[in-house]
Design a protein around this nucleic acid. Structure first.
Lengths: 352, 352
DNA sequence: TTGAAAGCGTTACCAA
DNA sequence: TTGGTAACGCTTTCAA
């Protein structure tokens, strides 16, 4: 069948003014397109595109430019990102996971910084909550957006990575304790945190260490590796489940006395503060009877009495990491890059 | 000019098996499209779409369905969200602002919860950092994504709202102290926080109140209204700029003594903790000589000695708000809805 | 039950 | 310097 080319109702280009509005305005309530702009300016859609994108390969006369800009302004034209990226064949979307639970100021600050740094590099950051979907299903949902890069949470397997890469992602970067086949990896192995704490306490003569395990769901991702790290330091470990409230802290403090523990690694500074207060309230001397060490080096630790010993975690700046993502996107390396982000070091203060 | 219809290389539909792969596979490295699936399954693109979307208006034979599903799986086909929404004429994107600075656990927890709740309702949440752009320019950048709903930060003006609405946003919802013409508003007026604190302190006989103003940029959005609230309670106000470190806190503690202040509203619990520690370290009795009240009712306040008085802020659950967004999207109300989110009430403890 | 084709809004190539 | 046209990947109406 013979196709009839779409009717172009453009005015002959000799017309110096904008076309009469009634012929040019898009239907009421409809979002104006570049075709509407073209019609109103009396030029072709191509010309509109050239003008609005400042295409340097083509010279457009000044009067034409002006007419196009005017028309665009008058209609309140805004280009359509989806159409553009469909045409371009790629997006500037970077996918980031949303932590399921408030995950502490340190890590959420880190993610926030990274997000801003990516925005500054002109990426569109999409925070994705994978809700109920399992690994591969989540990967498929993500792939629909055709992200140019993905920062994948721990839990994404090699299959998921493959799905994302085949959907056009230039850089798939896992954030987690272990590298995943085929993907770049930003290693964040929290075992190092537990290990540092364990060594510190052992050096002070504690062979048996209580390890606070937050009961809050979702924190296991961090808590379990930290626990494992303490074990690997050679200490005997006693798990102390703890919810983030005073009542349970009082219970835990009692438990610590019963068990005769002399040292506790408290998951992070917030749990450490909670526990230390509960211990003090039962008349236990810190560090005399029980040594307490936290992690994350939050400000509050310095304000406690005794000052809280902690494990400082050195994370790279968001800017640095955004730069890495950008480099990986521009110049997709065939070899996955593996990088260890965690530097864990003990900051000894007065509580140990 | 006569256009030649694009070649359809589909096998005659009698073929029971998948077409030979060499004829069906997309070019190496290319992302498979529904056309590739159709080719491999030996059906038309329309059929692929019907099968993959479970279109109920059309009955497709079971064998055909199977062949399509197989082909899709074999190629690792994932639909292209941009193409789909281009065709559909709308997206499921909800835009949310990213706070520029770590803004406290309360608010960031609130945003996080909202984000998850929206994800669960099957929206694609895009966290947008408007970087250097001014209000309208930011609105234009946002409009390119054709979001179905926008949660706009304070700072978005009526013009920006208009731009977003004309770009097809069904619900533009401002988060901030004042309603914006044309948009729905979730009012969060932090003056109520300062007001509650001010009244509390005045009732305890303090007519002159020091108000901590965080030096950190970006917190002014919250700090200034809180300050104004204290003023509106009728108290005489003295501003106490403070950066979040011990050294400056020591200086501020000295300043408080010099000024002869007997009461301080410390912006939030974290600054309150910092300041209270500095006061105690200089031998000042809290609340005997100086009363201190914080805000946000964080856990840490309960762990301090004396226990920290605070202003509790009641925010609605993320789920509730997500439901509201969803309702506004489905049933775009002509009348902007205004809703006050802030409930501020003093929790008196031992520090005042 | 299936297929052809139009069209969503852009941009880029090629021709004038 | 400008304009026509095709193409990106998908859904859907209409026709067979």
């Amino acid at each position: 069948m013979v196709q009839i080319p779409k009717q172009q109702t453009a005015k002959p280009s000799g017309s110096p003014e904008l076309a009469p509005p009634e012929a040019a305005k898009p239907a009421r309530g409809a979002v104006p397109t570049s075709a509407d702009v073209a019609r109103l300016a009396g030029v072709s859609r191509a010309t509109v595109s050239y003008v609005l994108n400042n295409t340097s390969a083509v010279r457009i006369s000044e009067p034409t430019r002006r007419r196009v800009h005017e028309a665009a302004k008058e209609l309140g034209y805004v280009p359509h990102a989806a159409a553009r990226s469909l045409r371009a064949g790629h997006t500037r979307i970077v996918l980031m996971p949303t932590p399921e639970v408030p995950v502490g100021p340190l890590y959420s600050g880190f993610l926030n910084e990274l997000q801003w740094a990516l925005s500054r590099l002109d990426y569109t950051v999409v925070q994705y909550g994978s809700v109920g979907l399992g690994g591969d299903e989540a990967a498929r949902a993500w792939a629909e957006l055709r992200p140019v890069a993905v920062l994948a949470p721990a839990g994404m397997g090699p299959d998921g990575v493959g799905i994302l890469q085949r959907s056009g992602a230039k850089a798939v970067i896992t954030l987690g304790p272990d590298p995943v086949t085929g993907a770049h990896a930003l290693l964040m192995d929290h075992r190092e945190v537990g290990h540092a704490a364990g060594e510190h306490l052992r050096a002070r003569g504690h062979g048996r260490i209580g390890v606070v395990m937050p009961r809050q769901e979702g924190l296991d991702t961090f808590a379990l590796p930290r626990l494992a790290g303490v074990q690997e330091s050679g200490a005997e470990v006693v798990r102390l489940p703890l919810s983030y409230d005073e009542e349970d802290a009082a219970r835990a403090a009692g438990q610590i006395r019963e068990l005769g523990l002399t040292a506790v690694f408290a998951y992070n500074d917030e749990y450490a503060m909670l526990l230390m207060r509960a211990l003090q309230d039962t008349g236990t001397d810190v560090p005399g009877e029980v040594a307490v060490i936290g992690a994350d080096d939050l400000m509050l630790g310095r304000l406690l009495r005794p000052r809280l010993s902690t494990v400082r975690i050195d994370l790279p700046s968001g800017e640095e990491l955004a730069g890495l993502v950008d480099r990986l996107v521009r110049d997709p390396a065939p070899e996955p890059e593996i990088r260890d982000l965690m530097g864990a070091s003990v900051v000894p203060r007065e509580s140990t």
